[in-house]
Nucleic acid binder design. Structure first.
Length: 669
DNA sequence: GCCGTTTCAAAGCC
DNA sequence: CGGCTTTGAAACGG
């Protein structure tokens, strides 16, 4: 592109073009900025030549570009179902009952579950129909989703969660298959399919499997603005996952946009960007972001070697600025708690307010885009991440008041559990004895320690084929990093009767907390729990502890109105974790080892642990997995809590206590 | 529709 | 553990 080297104003309007009607391009028409133009700034190049399609439209129709574009780009907001007054009354009643039930346990909010009718009415559906060998290209239809009802939000949240579980489960399966093939010595054996695939990344293979079955979300429509089911602050570990969900459709490129050919205006429109820190000219201050356009770099050296051009994503960002289209911003943050060393946070919507051609640090021309975060959104995931990191080391610097305890476990947990309340003067959690481990009735565990043949004889870490693996249906429940591969009726960990060392990977949940948790007070949910650490989906969080009561004891206690947690009441959410039936319809959830009908309960009225403060949700982010390791009485398993999603720092943990179905039955009778 | 180009990936290796 | 290399997938656009 030919550069205009004469000194001129730094605002785009200075480079006027007859073919663009400034009346309809407010951003191009604004007054020069008050701040003085930096001497580093280059004069702006002439604006992009209008694409033929737009020129034709402008010539043939007096109707200018902007309204037409808003019709095209803003398009059909989704309509939620009108609220059903009867249903609302029902949900109000749930809420009242839930409050009564939970007042003694100190937990939270009931959110109504979606009805099948709502699910059917949802507008953005995953692709359906026959498995297409060829993946469909992304379509050009632009949609902005607005004002979803609570039920729709939950519906989409579950839809997204299901896709993410499928993706992560497939990835885990493929990795494990690769390891098995390697362990069997198949590496290097010519013609063995698994070996050929071994070199292919599991995230890409998982995405391809889902693509073959039309399981990518939001392929039919290109969504401007928020993606239903994805919240500001959500965390992701793979770029490919962002593609699968439709949050960002480019595998590697940082700017995603609707291409010129697909846009109704004939111009590219940017929809999302990823700020990965790889461009030296970025200036990221959170709410204010100066983002560098792409291109102009040597593909190997990642250094600028030529001036960037106003094309592709660069042009699309400029067009989005002109039309006021909001941009989803995803930031990459380095962390050790990620399989790839970094995590992507969805940080919400921004608007491009300025762009200019600048001289980058390399000396070559780079396009820069000043973006401002739209106000009124949830806190940025990347900001919460940094804040939580600070709170771990300098608690009082950032929150000088509100701490009731820096460790309510008094050292009984492997990590401190903070108690924090800056809302009111409630100090209830201090009144209970902290019990890191449940106390089982002696009748339940007596003589059950060696039951089932005792432990394994492995002297090193356990491996496939060992006794404890056989107990778990010949596969270990956890991957190398300690994440649960898929939920089961019951997981057997190695225990005191095993010869393997404490470092054995089959001892995940007995090691205690691995995250820094905080019990906190909120106006919405009463007491709740959140983590300072990023929690990866499938990893262990904590145990549900208290005084374990036998069936008979439970009957007596419940008559007295005491606060009991009944394990059998938790819906079997573990069924979801590891479910790949969308890709493999023949998939059946593990039904082995069989688990008994659980009749015991846990009394948390006197002694309890952090788990007691989890809020209830019917769209939860954690679930209960039953585990045995110290005794082998299948009627009294441990209630271990695992993450069902990636849980970003400072987000409230929520669990499905399973009351809704019961009340639904009562209320509809 | 094919193919070349581009791309702020991810994993493996040293 | 960090930087380098290898091997990629998908979308755009000619």
């Amino acid at each position: 592109m030919e550069m205009d080297t004469s000194p001129s104003s730094s605002v785009p309007s200075s480079a006027s073009s007859d073919s663009i009607d400034l009346n309809f391009l407010p951003f191009l028409k604004r007054e020069p900025k008050s701040e003085p133009a930096s001497p580093e700034r280059w004069p702006l190049p002439p604006p992009p030549p209008p694409p033929p399609a737009q020129a034709a439209t402008a010539a043939s129709t007096p109707m200018p570009a902007t309204p037409e574009l808003s019709a095209a780009a803003v398009m059909t907001p989704l309509q939620s179902l009108p609220p059903n007054p009867d249903e609302d009354a029902l949900f109000a009643e749930y809420y009242r009952l839930a409050s009564l039930y939970l007042s003694s346990a100190g937990t939270g909010v009931i959110v109504p579950s979606p009805t099948p009718e709502v699910a059917a009415s949802a507008v953005v559906q995953p692709g359906s129909g026959n498995a297409a060998k060829k993946r469909r290209p992304r379509s050009s239809e632009l949609v902005r989703v607005s004002s979803l009802s609570v039920r729709d939000q939950i519906y989409f949240r579950d839809l997204v969660r299901r896709a993410r579980i499928t993706f992560e489960s497939l990835r885990g399966m493929l990795l494990r298959d690769d390891e098995r093939a390697e362990a069997l010595g198949l590496a290097g054996v010519a013609g063995f399919a698994a070996v050929d695939r071994r070199r292919v990344r599991a995230d890409l293979r998982a995405a391809a499997l889902m693509g073959d079955r039309d399981l990518w979300l939001n392929r039919d429509r290109r969504i401007v603005g928020p993606i239903p089911g994805i919240s500001v602050g959500d965390a992701f570990f793979f770029r490919m996952e962002l593609c699968v969900l439709g949050l960002h459709g480019q595998v590697q490129a940082g700017i995603d946009f609707v291409s010129a050919g697909q846009s109704s205006s004939g111009e590219p429109i940017a929809t999302s960007i990823i700020v990965s820190g790889g461009y030296e000219d970025d200036d990221d201050r959170g709410d204010i972001l100066v983002y560098t356009g792409h291109g102009g770099r040597d593909p190997n050296l990642h250094k600028h070697c030529v001036d960037q051009k106003l094309e592709g994503g660069n042009l699309a960002l400029e067009r989005s600025m002109a039309y006021g289209i909001e941009i989803r911003v995803i930031r990459a943050v380095k962390t050790r708690r990620s399989p790839i060393g970094k995590v992507y946070f969805y940080d919400g919507l921004y608007k491009v307010v300025d762009f200019w051609l600048d001289r980058g640090k390399s000396g070559f021309g780079v396009y820069k885009y000043k973006m401002l975060r739209i106000e009124g959104q949830e806190a940025m995931g990347s900001l919460n991440f940094r804040l939580a990191e600070q709170l771990k080391v300098n608690a009082l610097t950032f929150r000088p008041t509100g701490y009731l305890s820096f460790d309510i476990s008094m050292g009984r947990e492997t990590m401190p559990v903070v108690l924090y309340n800056d809302v009111d003067d409630d100090r209830d959690p201090l009144l209970f004895e902290y019990l890191a481990r449940p106390i089982f009735p002696s009748s339940a565990v007596q003589g059950k320690f060696g039951e089932g043949g005792g432990g394994c004889e492995c002297t090193d870490n356990c491996s496939i084929g060992c006794y404890c693996a056989a107990r778990n249906g010949s596969e270990f429940a956890y991957d190398k990093a300690g994440a649960l591969l898929r939920g089961k009726p019951l997981v057997y960990e190695c225990g005191p009767y095993c010869r393997c060392p404490p470092s054995c990977p089959n001892r995940v949940s007995q090691k205690g907390l691995m995250n820094r948790l905080e019990v906190f007070r909120s106006r919405e949910t009463g007491w709740g729990v959140r983590s300072f650490d990023l929690i990866k989906a499938g990893t262990f969080i904590c145990e549900f502890s208290g005084i374990v009561l036998t069936h008979q004891q439970s009957e007596i206690m419940s008559v007295n109105g005491d606060c009991l947690v009944r394990p059998s009441r938790f819906p079997p959410r573990w069924l979801d974790w590891g479910d790949v039936s969308d890709v493999y319809p023949e998939y059946v959830a593990p039904n082995n080892p069989a688990v008994a009908d659980l009749k015991f309960s846990i009394d948390v009225s006197r002694a309890r642990n952090v788990a007691c403060y989890f809020s209830h949700s019917c769209s939860p982010n954690v679930f209960v997995q039953f585990v045995l390791f110290d005794h082998y009485n299948v009627s009294y398993p441990h209630l271990m809590i695992f993450a069902m999603e990636n849980i970003p720092p400072l987000r409230e943990l929520s669990i499905d206590y399973g009351m809704i179905d019961e009340w639904m039955g009562k209320l509809t009778m």
